[in-house]
Amino acid sequence: TEYKLVVVGAGGVGKSALTIQLIQNHFVDEYDPTIEDSYRKQVVIDGETCLLDILDTAGQEEYSAMRDQYMRTGEGFLCVFAINNTKSFEDIHQYREQIKRVKDSDDVPMVLVGNKCDLAARTVESRQAQDLARSYGIPYIETSAKTRQGVEDAFYTLVREIRQH
Score class of each variant (00 low, 15 high):
residue 134 R to T: 05
residue 12 G to Y: 12
residue 8 V to E: 00
residue 74 G to C: 12
residue 60 Q to D: 14
residue 7 V to C: 12
residue 71 M to P: 07
residue 128 Q to C: 09
residue 53 D to W: 03
residue 116 K to Y: 14
residue 25 N to K: 14
residue 27 F to R: 01
residue 155 F to I: 14
residue 89 F to Q: 11
residue 51 L to E: 15
residue 27 F to T: 02
residue 136 Y to G: 04
residue 45 I to L: 05
residue 8 V to W: 09
residue 124 V to C: 08
residue 102 V to Q: 11
residue 42 Q to E: 11
residue 161 E to G: 08
residue 147 T to C: 12
residue 81 F to E: 00
residue 154 A to E: 01
residue 5 L to D: 00
residue 133 A to H: 03
residue 20 I to G: 04
residue 139 P to A: 08
residue 130 Q to N: 08
residue 146 K to W: 14
residue 143 T to C: 13
residue 34 T to N: 00
residue 45 I to N: 09
residue 155 F to H: 01
residue 70 Y to T: 13
residue 8 V to F: 13
residue 111 V to Y: 04
residue 164 Q to K: 12
residue 55 L to C: 08
residue 130 Q to S: 09
residue 109 P to F: 05
residue 78 L to D: 01
residue 102 V to E: 12
residue 10 A to L: 08
residue 120 A to H: 08
residue 68 D to Y: 04
residue 12 G to D: 14
residue 68 D to A: 05
residue 35 I to S: 01
residue 65 A to E: 08
residue 107 D to N: 13
residue 33 P to V: 02
residue 149 Q to L: 08
residue 68 D to I: 04
residue 67 R to N: 14
residue 10 A to E: 07
residue 132 L to H: 05
residue 118 D to E: 13
residue 133 A to K: 03
residue 67 R to D: 15
residue 37 D to C: 00
residue 18 L to T: 07
residue 122 R to H: 12
residue 29 D to H: 02
residue 28 V to C: 10
residue 6 V to W: 06
residue 67 R to H: 15
residue 57 T to Q: 03
residue 57 T to I: 12
residue 94 Q to A: 14
residue 129 A to F: 08
residue 19 T to G: 07
residue 15 K to Y: 00
residue 149 Q to S: 08
residue 159 V to A: 06
residue 91 D to S: 14
residue 38 S to K: 03
residue 113 V to F: 01
residue 165 H to Y: 09
residue 96 R to W: 14
residue 62 E to K: 12
residue 29 D to K: 08
residue 9 G to W: 00
residue 136 Y to N: 06
residue 159 V to K: 06
residue 131 D to G: 05
residue 22 L to V: 09
residue 60 Q to H: 15
residue 82 A to I: 04
residue 112 L to T: 01
residue 72 R to T: 09
residue 62 E to S: 15
residue 156 Y to G: 12
residue 45 I to C: 10
residue 146 K to E: 14
residue 104 D to N: 13
residue 2 E to D: 06
residue 120 A to N: 11
residue 98 Q to V: 14
residue 105 S to V: 11
residue 72 R to D: 11
residue 75 E to A: 11
residue 113 V to Y: 02
residue 102 V to H: 10
residue 86 T to N: 11
residue 43 V to K: 13
residue 141 I to H: 06
residue 22 L to D: 00
residue 150 G to F: 06
residue 13 V to P: 05
residue 46 D to K: 09
residue 68 D to M: 07
residue 136 Y to H: 09
residue 132 L to A: 06
residue 82 A to H: 12
residue 159 V to Q: 02
residue 117 C to T: 08
residue 31 Y to S: 01
residue 84 N to D: 14
residue 88 S to I: 04
residue 85 N to D: 15
residue 35 I to P: 00
residue 142 E to F: 03
residue 8 V to I: 08
residue 154 A to Y: 01
residue 56 D to K: 01
residue 153 D to L: 07
residue 20 I to R: 01
residue 7 V to Y: 02
residue 31 Y to H: 06
residue 88 S to N: 06
residue 27 F to H: 04
residue 51 L to M: 11
residue 37 D to Q: 00
residue 114 G to C: 10
residue 161 E to D: 09
residue 158 L to H: 00
residue 137 G to Y: 03
residue 160 R to D: 09
residue 38 S to W: 02
residue 88 S to L: 04
residue 29 D to C: 05
residue 3 Y to A: 06
residue 116 K to D: 02
residue 130 Q to R: 09
residue 140 Y to R: 01
residue 33 P to E: 03
residue 165 H to E: 12
residue 43 V to Y: 15
residue 150 G to P: 10
residue 140 Y to S: 02
residue 51 L to K: 04
residue 38 S to P: 01
residue 74 G to E: 04
residue 62 E to W: 15
residue 130 Q to H: 08
residue 143 T to D: 01
residue 6 V to G: 03
residue 34 T to W: 00
residue 65 A to V: 14
residue 7 V to E: 01
residue 162 I to G: 03
residue 49 T to G: 08
residue 62 E to G: 15
residue 32 D to F: 00
residue 3 Y to V: 09
residue 73 T to L: 11
residue 119 L to P: 10
residue 140 Y to E: 01
residue 54 I to C: 04
residue 140 Y to C: 06
residue 106 D to T: 12
residue 19 T to L: 09
residue 153 D to Y: 05
residue 156 Y to M: 14
residue 102 V to F: 13
residue 58 A to E: 04
residue 114 G to R: 03
residue 158 L to P: 01
residue 69 Q to E: 13
residue 58 A to P: 12
residue 17 A to K: 03
residue 127 R to D: 10
residue 103 K to S: 08
residue 11 G to N: 14
residue 60 Q to G: 15
residue 101 R to S: 08
residue 44 V to T: 11
residue 96 R to G: 07
residue 21 Q to E: 07
residue 129 A to N: 07
residue 95 Y to T: 13
residue 26 H to C: 13
residue 127 R to Y: 07
residue 66 M to Q: 13
residue 145 A to T: 08
residue 12 G to S: 11
residue 30 E to F: 03
residue 3 Y to R: 15
residue 64 S to D: 13
residue 119 L to F: 14
residue 107 D to T: 12
residue 152 E to L: 12
residue 59 G to P: 08
residue 131 D to C: 04
residue 131 D to P: 03
residue 20 I to S: 03
residue 81 F to K: 01
residue 131 D to N: 07
residue 45 I to G: 04
residue 93 H to F: 12
residue 113 V to M: 08
residue 45 I to W: 07
residue 28 V to K: 00
residue 120 A to R: 08
residue 130 Q to I: 08
residue 142 E to L: 04
residue 9 G to T: 00
residue 112 L to E: 02
residue 141 I to G: 02
residue 153 D to I: 06
residue 100 K to T: 06
residue 39 Y to A: 00
residue 17 A to M: 05
residue 44 V to H: 08
residue 75 E to T: 12
residue 115 N to A: 15
residue 103 K to E: 04
residue 50 C to E: 05
residue 151 V to Y: 13
residue 67 R to T: 15
residue 103 K to H: 12
residue 44 V to Q: 09
residue 50 C to R: 05
residue 11 G to K: 15
residue 87 K to I: 07
residue 59 G to V: 03
residue 146 K to T: 14
residue 126 S to N: 07
residue 63 Y to F: 11
residue 97 E to A: 11
residue 39 Y to F: 07
residue 87 K to W: 06
residue 54 I to L: 09
residue 61 E to I: 15
residue 85 N to S: 09
residue 18 L to V: 11
residue 131 D to Y: 07
residue 134 R to Y: 05
residue 83 I to Y: 13
residue 59 G to H: 05
residue 117 C to I: 06
residue 77 F to T: 02
residue 47 G to H: 06
residue 113 V to H: 00
residue 149 Q to W: 05
residue 154 A to H: 01
residue 105 S to K: 12
residue 62 E to V: 15
residue 84 N to G: 15
residue 143 T to P: 04
residue 37 D to M: 00
residue 140 Y to F: 07
residue 145 A to P: 12
residue 9 G to A: 02
residue 7 V to K: 03
residue 59 G to C: 03
residue 122 R to P: 12
residue 140 Y to P: 01
residue 144 S to K: 07
residue 91 D to M: 15
residue 149 Q to V: 07
residue 83 I to E: 11
residue 27 F to I: 02
residue 117 C to L: 06
residue 1 T to W: 06
residue 92 I to H: 02
residue 142 E to S: 04
residue 50 C to A: 07
residue 82 A to N: 15
residue 146 K to C: 14
residue 101 R to G: 06
residue 128 Q to W: 10
